[in-house]
Amino acid sequence: MKEDNSIMNMGISSLIVFLGIFFPVMFLTGFWAAFKLGFFYVMLFYVPFLPLAYSFKELSDIERGFIANILGIGYVGIYAALDIFLKIKLEFFTYSIVTILIFCISLYFYRREK
């Protein structure tokens, strides 16, 4: 039986994206700003969509990572709809709740396809 390493691969993929951001930024801003930019980019724009991207089985890890990035950058558009139609404030709390919600939906699709 073929071993499923997808969870480990998701972890490695996130770490690689973090490091790919952290090192170039560190030379320009120093440690903490680079850490914060890398960490929050990965947590807000990458990780939430990674399980969904990993549910697309035919793809390579690079392709999945790329798709997670596309979805990650693209999903922020949802806040415009929340702002206009529901008059929800765009603040830390809203961003956190929506990101967690998206991660849960993404995880659901990952579990369903597994």
């Binding site: 914060k36 807000l44 950058i73 922020v76 806040y79 765009l90 830390f92 961003y95």
Partner: peptide
């Protein structure tokens, strides 16, 4: 919005 979100965090 993406930038504001990143700044907020």
């Amino acid at each position: 919005t993406a930038s504001a979100m990143l700044s907020e965090f």
